[in-house]
Every structure is written in C-alpha cells, then in structure tokens.
Design a protein around this nucleic acid. Structure first.
Lengths: 410, 410
DNA sequence: AAAGCATTTGTGATAATTCACAAACGCACT
DNA sequence: AGTGCGTTTGTGAATTATCACAAATGCTTT
C-alpha cells in the first residue's frame, strides 16, 4: 500500500520511451504517448497484446484520422482537453479501438499531449487512474523540455515562411538549406492555403487550426503563420488522389471540424496553385489571395470556389482588366446604362447584371430583384433600345458579364 | 452655221458657275457640274424649270445616294467613266430623275467630274451634244487648276493623318489647328476604318474607294491614307442613327458597291471605337487593327464582326491563352469530352461548342448540327454526366466558350 | 390641373423549352 | 442470332419564356 501512495514516476526517465515502459510496467497495460496533434511520441514495447487502432497508430506514427474523428464525435477529446482526469473510452469497434483509458498532459489549460492505456489485460482500478494522473504530470515536464527548442525554431520558421511568401528568398538552394536547418522535410509539390476567420487569430485559435491541419490526413503542413484574421499554411497534399482534390477535401473537412469542434464558423478558405519549387510559394500565395478577393467581392456562387484552379474565368479578370486599362477600354454599353440610371433613377445596370449572373433566367432574376417578371422583360427591352446590346450574341453577353465582374473587383 | 463650228467655251470663265451658265445659255437647258464624287461644283441659275433630283442635289450639295445607286444600276456611270461621249439618260421616276444628258470631264482615263444637262425645255440634238463635249473639255482645264492646290494639301493631309494614327500629335489644339489649315471641318465623333483588300491599293483603287466613301451618305471622310493593301479612313458618321450603326451600314454598303461597281470582292473591313477627340485617333486605329487580326485568325463567324465594339471577348483571347500557357492550364472538361468522343465516336465536343456559340438556342444548334432537337437535349444531358459541366453556371459556360475559341485559335 | 412620358404590374394568349417516356437504331460482345 | 448499351428520334405534356395590351403609378412639363 505504501508503494501506491508514493509517486513511482518521480525523477527523469531520459526519454519518453522509458517513461512509457515504466507506466506500462506499473499498470500492466500497453501504453502510448502522443503529442497534442496525436502524433506518436512513444509507446511501450514489452507487451504484445494490443488492438488494431494502436497498431495503426504505431505504424503510421500518428493516430489515424478516423479514430480521431470518432473520439471527437464521442466527446472524448473535448473532455480530455478540459480536465486532468483520466477518461475511460469504451471500445469502438468500427475504428478498431479496444477499451482504454486516456489522460491529457497539460500545462495550465494548454494540452501538450495524451497518454493512452489499453485495457486488454486488465481493467484499471481507481488507484491505477490516480497513478496515471501522476504519470501525466511526469510526462508534462518532459514534454515541456522538448518544447524549449521548438519555440526558437518556431520563430525561425515564421521568418522563413514570410520571406518565401513575399518573395524575399528567391534562391531555391537557400530555401532548402533553411528548411534543413529547421528540420522540415522539403516535400513537394506544395500549396499555400489561406484560412480566414472573422476575428483575430489568437494563439489558442492558431493552435486549434494547426491541430486540425495536422490531424487531417490530406495535407502535410510544412510552415504556417498567423496574420491578423488569416492563417497561412504551406502544405503538401498527401495521398493517392489528385493533389488539388486533396486540398479541396482538406478545406471542406476543415470547415466542418472547425464548426463542430471549436464552434468557429463563417470561415473563408482559399489555396493557390500547386508549386513544384519553393521559389513559387509567393505566386501560390498571391493566387490564394486573389481567390479570397473574388469570394469577398463577388460573393454568390464564388463562395464555393476555394482553389485557384477552380476560379475558371475569374482567374483572368485581372489580366483582362490590365489590358483594358492599357488600351483605355471602356464598356460603352455599361457606361450608357449607368448614365441612363443616373438620369432616370432606374436600375437597368443592376438589372442586367443580375439577369446575366443568374444564367439569364427570368424567374430567378425577377425574384432576386423583387420585381414582376414583365418589369424585367420591359427593362431588358429598354436596355436593348438604349444601348444596342444584343442579348442574342454570346460574345456580347460574355464581355458584359466580365465587365460587370471587373467593375465589382477593381 | 459658222457659230457652231467654233468653240463657244474657249477662254477662261473665272469660275465654274460662269461656265455652267454659259453652257446653259448655249444649250437652253439647266446645267449641273459635279466633281468625281458627285459633289455639286456649280449649277446654272437662270432657269427655273427643273426636276426633283436636281433640286435635291443642289439643296444637299451632292447627288442623293439613291440617285447615284440608280445610275450605277442602269450602267450610266460606268459608261460615262469609259468614254468622253455624252450619254443620254431616260427619266427614272422612282428617284425623281427627268430626261437628261451627261458627259464626263476627263483627263486621260481619270474622271474629274460630270456635266449634267436636263432636257426639260428641249431635247439636245447631235450638234448640242458636240458642244457639250467641248464644254467638258473646257471644264477639264478648270477642274485641273482647282486640283493643283489639292495635291499639296493632300500630302499635308497624309502627313497629319499618319501623325494622328501613330500618336505623334498628342495635343488636341495642334490637331485642330492643322485641320483648320487644311480646310477640314473637325467633325466629331469620328471613327478610324481599315478597309483591307487582297491586293495592293493602286492609286486607281484608292480613288474608287474614296469615291464610295464620299458618295455614301453614312459617313463623312475627314482623312484617308493608303497603306499597302489597306485603306485607312478617319470618318465621322453622319445621320440620325447611332454613329456605330452608321459605321456598320457604311461597311456593308461598301462591300456590295465595291463588288457591284468595281468587281472587287474579298474585302475585309474593320473600325475602332468612336472617338470624341482627335488625340484618340491612335486608339481607334489600334482597335480597328485588332478587329482585323481577330477576323484573320479566327475567320468564320467573326468575319461579320467589323466594329471593335462588336468584338466582345475576342480581344482578350490571346492574353488569356498566354496566361494559361504560363501556368500549364488545361480545361479538364473539354479534355474529357474529347476523350469520350474519341472512344465512342461521338460528337459531344462539337455539339457543346455549337450549342454555346449559337447562344444556347436549341433550335438553331440542332439545325446547325443536323440532328433532332431531342438528340441535342440528350447529348447535353450526357455531357453533364460525363464532365460535371454545369450548364446553369454562367461562369463555367463562359470559360468553356473561351476555351473552345482558344482551341480553334491556337 | 392637365398632359405626356417612362415605368411598373397585371392578364391572357402564344411560342419555346424542357421533361418523361417509348420505340427504334447501330454497334460491340457473346 | 441474341443481348446490352449508348444513341437517336418521335410523341405528348408540363413548364417556362415571350409577346400584346390594358391599367395604374409616378414624375416632369406645360
């Protein structure tokens, strides 16, 4: 009994592996230690009875996404994040998870990692749980020590990332050197993501976002940075699907997870094109920015466009606009419409824009404009009279459509 | 008898008006003298019996277009241009033309103008016709003298025009001064036309073109220049219609008249946008040039696009293509359509292109493709299934349309 | 106040389109 | 020859777009 009242985990263990083995010894169960992103840090070795989830975690050096999802759905992870107390998880067959007990490794309210104990040989009793809590305290100091180096590295990473984003590091060689120094695997191809929230990104939010990005199996985050209400990521899509499809599905799951797990909604996301060298990061960043600009200024259906490659014609609006500026082009038709609107206090401009934007559908357009269908019809007829716009000509309509959008964008 | 054998028109008459009166005296008929472009030069005054065509000519200071048309149709003008002999024209009621006799004023094979004699009081006898021929000879020397100043002016005009076209005269004031010096009314708005023939523009062809441009009532030519196989015009549309509509209808009548009257076909024409100051002439010229470029590169449907304002999106295709090339863009939808066509020997690609090009009109498209309407409908449904093209999305359709055209172009 | 004009809305008829369904065709494959 | 599949064509109905008119509104002009 005396033994149980003292702390068997006092002192240093040299490495987390040793600590894992010690815990396993004391509790007579397989033990796994993960960091805050469910990346494998250490696992006990002298036990051979285990479950598929643990095997997959060890093999993949991280907890499989579907296991994490399942733990979130059952509220396990939120409970772990909120208290120091061990949480018992009943087996979840679907994801190969046997009965187990987990405890979070925390410093104040910040989660540093988790300890998992599988109940294959025996069930943990209350005393075991008390011991597990002590183990977590021991792991905490070890993890904190490991993170000291990380802080400095993190600053260097930020600096490197911003240099890449702004094109201040134009030599591929230098970038690769820096990445090596920072212990980042230079995985290509990569994509720049922008995740834009409605409010400022706090360190806590940043952690949450990075957590989701790290846990998600679609992309491998190389670098990240918070910029007021935007979170920037340089990441490499991982998987057998098309890289850009992976990027899209990452964004989609990111949305739902941010909402479900952290109650953060109204997020906008965008990503640039795939780059095959780190000197192109700036370009990918600019592209992602322009996707966001399109979303914010054009709204509507463009809100579902997250990838630069999905922008379709919107990719070329800036190019077209530049050329128009160079040659002093003005869309006479739109100008005369606006002039007419000004003089007669009408809304022909908005009418035509809505009509064209809504696929020339009389029903939808008249509804959107809150007018009678015949009014819309009359206005279109007037537009034809006033501007000699020919609504039967695809060329003209396309040019009008683009000019409408350009007027909104620039 | 002796009187008839001498030349009553010998000597100088001071002005063409005096000559007109003299001819009228001798022949006892109303007389009108026109230049080679049927512009009124002089008319006899002491007669009051006349016909509507003559009245209209005097009032408008030029022969009405429909009268000229009618004279061409009846072969009168070609006959006048081919010989020195007077030609008798029977009355043409439709255009208010009474019986009359005309003779051309020629220097070698070049027509300088025409003398018209109305046979209202009496019919001209052979002797009268001989006298008329002498009158034409007398008019010739007068017209030639008038043209001496014109030659020098013409050179100055050319110089001014080229400076304006190339943007080498960027001050509106200076241009207006020059125009005043050259006795050109600075009429605005104006448009630059390019009329492009298949062969080099000879002085004779230049004359013919300017003749049609001058006779045509739609535009008022301020300046002109020949440039290898192109004829450049700076002209102001005249009439109550929209200026650009006038420009278009000028081009249309120009085509038919060049073919009918001078047997010159295969002409391409283009014009830039309406300018409201002469400093913008360069811009209008460049626009006209780009219209021609599109016509030549795309052909087919674009041949009917003569005005820059009608060009729509075509001006930007090259820019868009270049950007696509730079970033290795490919339209996946069109690629998969082509792939499907190849594998199944179908024509979905052409179907969609035709459908979009013909303004998404089922009737027109099915007719153009020689298929049943429902077949077209079915194909469009299949296209949607195969490619996840959404034909309700304007932005997708526009991208497709542009890629179709780009695929044709490059 | 009256008149003129552009605009909006309503009603009803007409034309065009989309859709559902059936039948037939052509072709590859067995 | 039969089968299955994708395709084409035909028929008819449902939906939608378009047109013609009438009536009412609001605004400016006289």
């Amino acid at each position: 009994m005396k033994e149980y009242q003292t702390d068997p985990f006092k002192g240093t263990f040299g490495s987390l592996e040793n600590l894992a083995d010690k815990i396993s010894d004391v509790l007579s169960c397989p033990v796994t230690i993960e960091d805050q992103n469910h990346r494998l840090l250490a696992y006990s070795t002298h036990e051979d009875s285990t479950d598929p989830a643990r095997v997959a975690t060890i093999i993949g050096r991280r907890v499989p996404e579907k296991v994490v999802n399942s733990l979130w759905k059952d509220g396990v992870i939120p409970r772990l994040q909120e208290s120091d107390d061990p949480v018992r998880v009943s087996s979840i067959q679907k994801v190969g998870l046997g009965d187990r007990v987990a405890v979070s490794i925390r410093k104040n309210s910040e989660v540093l990692g988790y300890i998992w104990v599988l109940e294959v040989e025996k069930k943990l009793n209350p005393d075991d749980l008390r011991l597990l809590k002590l183990a977590a305290a021991s792991a905490k100091s070890q993890l904190l020590q490991m993170q000291i180096g990380t802080k400095k590295k993190e600053e260097n990473r930020q600096e490197l990332f911003w240099k890449m984003l702004t094109g201040n590091l134009p030599q591929e060689k230098r970038i690769l050197e820096k990445l090596h120094e920072l212990n980042i695997l230079p995985v290509l191809p990569a994509v720049v993501f922008i995740l834009q929230l409605q409010k400022e990104i706090t360190p806590a939010l940043e952690k949450d976002i990075l957590y989701l990005a790290a846990v998600n199996q679609k992309i491998n985050v190389l670098l990240s940075a918070a910029d007021s209400n935007q979170m920037l990521l340089l990441a490499s899509p991982v998987g057998k699907e098309q890289p850009l499809d992976l990027a899209k599905s990452f964004v989609e799951t990111f949305f739902t997870h941010m909402k479900e797990r952290f109650s953060v909604s109204e997020i906008k996301a965008a990503y640039g094109s795939l780059v095959t060298s780190f000197t192109q990061v700036e370009k990918s960043y600019k592209e992602a920015s322009s996707v966001l600009a399109v979303q914010e200024k054009l709204g509507g259906e463009t809100l579902s466009l997250t990838g630069y490659h999905e922008l379709g014609i919107y990719q070329f609006l800036d190019t077209i606009y530049e050329k128009q500026q160079r040659q002093g082009y003005q869309n006479e038709m739109l100008k005369s419409l606006q002039e007419y609107d000004r003089l007669h206090k009408t809304e022909l401009y908005r009418t035509l824009e809505t009509y064209l934007t809504l696929d020339e559908n009389l029903n939808k357009a008249s509804e959107a404009l809150h007018i009678h269908m015949n009014t819309l019809l009359y206005r279109l007829k007037r537009i034809g009279e006033i501007t000699n716009i020919d609504l039967k000509s695809p060329h003209q309509k396309i040019m009008l459509y683009l000019d409408f959008k350009i007027n909104r964008l620039f």
